[in-house]
């Protein structure tokens, strides 16, 4: 009897259990897996996210401008494999779940990103840049030499690394 009264008093104190949404904010955990966000500045262009994407939501296209990333949120199942396998965490899942949209916007639920090509400081060949996060992983921290290497295309970088070892 007394236990029941305690529950009754607690319930009166706490107020209704129903969330106010859509008339107010709904509580969302920070780790909730929602809409995918892409950061072109830290993408290395390994295309691992495209390879592991269960719903086939991620597509890459390459042309003279660089590497174009595209995700269609309407076939993304928010499994988080892309985030898990991304070596530099350029692709992350935000906790934004406000994805309901009218049919007219079905094919505009996409996000683009372009990893621009840069020119080799030695030979001028266009190549996808080696981003600082990747150089950190490869060389365990950076110095002036690794910064100079980052500006070179893979061929020149290989040549420069070998000549450095000889001298």
């Amino acid at each position: 009897m007394m236990a029941f009264l305690k529950i009754l008093l607690d319930n009166l104190r706490k107020g209704p259990a129903t969330e106010a949404f859509p008339f107010g904010e709904a509580p969302t955990p920070p780790a909730y897996r929602g809409k995918v966000a892409f950061d072109a500045d830290t993408c290395t262009g390994c295309k691992m996210c495209e390879h592991v994407c269960a719903g086939g939501a991620i597509r890459f296209a390459e042309d003279d401008d660089g590497l174009h990333f595209l995700i269609w949120h309407n076939t993304c199942i928010s499994c988080g494999l892309c985030e898990y396998y991304c070596p530099t965490k350029a692709i992350t899942l935000t906790n934004n779940w406000h994805l309901a949209h009218p049919q007219s916007e079905k094919y505009t639920q996409i996000d683009h990103g372009t990893v621009a090509q840069c020119r080799c400081t030695e030979c001028g060949t266009a190549f996808l840049p080696a981003i600082p996060a990747l150089m950190d992983l490869a060389y365990r921290g950076q110095n002036d030499r690794t910064k100079a290497l980052a500006g070179m295309c893979p061929d020149c970088r290989r040549r420069a690394t070998l000549s450095g070892a000889r001298s």
């Binding site: 949120h73 309901a100 949209h101």
Partner: peptide, 23 residues
């Protein structure tokens, strides 16, 4: 058939479904 509102998710959370129903 003609669709009016899309609620993506696998599955969408209940609040997202309520958002779609409100639309």
């Amino acid at each position: 058939l003609p669709v009016d509102v899309n609620v993506p998710g696998c599955p969408p959370r209940p609040q997202a479904i309520i958002e779609g129903i409100a639309q």
